[in-house]
Design a protein around this nucleic acid. Structure first.
Lengths: 209, 209
DNA sequence: AAGATTTGAGAACGATCGTTCTCCTCGGGG
DNA sequence: CCCCGAGGAGAACGATCGTTCTCAAATCTT
C-alpha cells in the first residue's frame, strides 16, 4: 500500500523539520479525514489538504497520485477505524443482549461529538456515488461489514436472523436522522426500538392479527 | 414565489416554438430534479440544465437568479411531491395499522424504480449541508414533515408516542440502505420490523428484564 | 411600418481546482 | 569546495463552472 519503497535503512532522515514518509502519510490522512468529513469531498481542494497537513504538494501527489486515490484512502481508513472503535466499545460488555444494545450507546456517544455530521459513507455516497464507482463500492463494503458485525452480535444472542436486519435499519436510520436534525436523541430511540424487538422475539412471537 | 409578475393577461404569448414562463419553469424544474437527483448537485452545471430544459441561460437566470436558488426550488418541489405521492398511496387504505404498513410498501415501490438513488435530502445534506445552510434547513424541514406524518398515522392507530420515532428510524434506515446496497429489500425488512413493533405494543408491553 | 425592447444562442469573464512545472535551497560525495 | 540530486514552496497550466455580456433576430407598440 505504501508507495515509496519504505526505506533501505535511513536513507533520508535529515534533521529537525524534515519529516519521514510515514508521518507525512499520517498527517495527510488526518487532514483529509477532518476536512472531507467536515465539509464534503468536493468542497475541499488538494491545496487545503496540503496546508492542513503541512506536506508539500509534490509529496502529497507522490503519496496519492490523484484526489480520487486520496479519497479512497480516506474511506478505507475511516472504515477500519470506525469499526474498530465500535468493536472496542462493544467488547467491554459480555452479556449478548447487552452487547447489542451497546451498539446504540456507542452511536449516541458518536452523535454527541461536536463535529458529528452523519455517516461519512452515506455522505460520500450521496455526493459521489453516482459519479465515482469506487466511492459507491466503498460505501457498500462498509455497510456490509457493519451489517455482518450486527449479524454476529445477533446470532451470539440467539436472536432470529431477521432481527439483525432490523437492528441495521435502526442504526442506519439513527445515523442520518441524528445528522440532519442535529441531535443525538435518535440513538436512544433506536436503542428503545431494539430493546422492544429483542424482547418481542425472546418472549415467543405472539403475532396475532 | 414566481419572479416575473405572471401575466397582465397574455402579454407575451408568441407563436409556435416560443414557450411561456410557466412551462419554462416546469421544464427547468424537471431538468433540475432529474439531473441533481441522478448525479448530485455539484456534478451538474447550469449549462447542462439549460441543455436539458431547452431554456436559454438568460431565462434560466431570470427564473432562478443563482444556482443556489434553483437548488432550493428543486428541494422545495421535491419535498411536496414526495410527500404528496406517499399520502396518496397511504390514503388508499383505511385500517389504521394498514396505513402505517402501507408506508413501507410505498417505499418498496420507490426503491424498485430503476433510477432510485436514495433520499434526495439525505444526499443533498451530505453534499452541501455543511456549506449551504439552506440545504441543511431544507433537509431538516423535510424530515420533520415526514416524521410528523408518521406520528399522525401512529396516533390514528392508537400507538404509543415512541412508536412513531421507531417507525421513522426504520423508514430512514431503509432508504439509505436500499440506496447503498442497490436493492429494494430493506423496505420489506423495515415493514417486518414495523409489524413486530406494532404487535409488541398492541399485545400489552411485556417488558421483562 | 419603424423604432424600442426583449429574447435566444453562445461567447466571454473571473474564479476555482486538480495537477504539473519551475526555481531555489540544502545536504552529500568527489 | 563544488557539482548533484532531492525536496519544498508556490507559480503556472488547463479545464470546468457560475454568471454576465454581446449581438443579431424577432416581437410589441404606436
Amino acid at each position: 500500500m505504501v508507495l515509496c519503497a519504505r526505506g533501505q535503512e535511513g536513507k533520508r532522515e535529515k534533521v529537525g523539520e524534515m519529516i519521514d514518509s510515514e508521518t507525512a502519510e499520517l498527517r495527510v490522512l488526518d487532514a483529509a479525514e477532518s476536512l472531507f468529513y467536515a465539509r464534503g469531498i468536493q468542497a475541499v481542494g488538494m491545496d487545503e489538504i496540503r496546508t492542513a497537513s503541512g506536506v508539500s504538494l509534490k509529496r502529497l501527489y507522490r503519496l496519492h497520485p490523484s484526489k480520487a486515490d486520496l479519497v479512497e484512502a480516506y474511506l478505507r481508513r475511516r472504515d477500519v477505524r470506525w469499526r474498530r472503535s465500535l468493536a472496542a466499545y462493544v467488547d467491554a460488555r459480555t452479556d449478548p443482549q447487552e452487547r447489542i444494545l451497546a451498539v446504540f450507546d456507542w452511536l449516541h456517544d458518536w452523535f454527541a461529538e461536536p463535529d458529528f455530521r452523519g455517516c461519512a459513507f452515506v455522505n460520500s455516497f450521496g455526493e459521489l456515488g453516482a459519479t465515482e464507482s469506487a466511492v459507491a463500492e466503498a460505501a457498500r463494503a462498509h455497510k456490509e461489514e457493519f451489517f455482518r458485525y450486527l449479524a454476529d452480535l445477533a446470532t451470539a444472542a440467539d436472536a432470529p436472523t431477521p432481527l439483525a436486519d432490523h437492528l441495521a435499519l435502526l442504526a442506519e436510520g439513527a445515523m442520518t436522522t441524528a445528522a440532519i436534525i442535529g441531535s443525538p436523541e435518535p440513538a436512544h430511540q433506536a436503542r428503545d426500538a431494539a430493546r422492544l424487538l429483542l424482547d418481542a422475539t425472546a418472549n415467543g412471537d405472539a403475532r396475532s392479527a
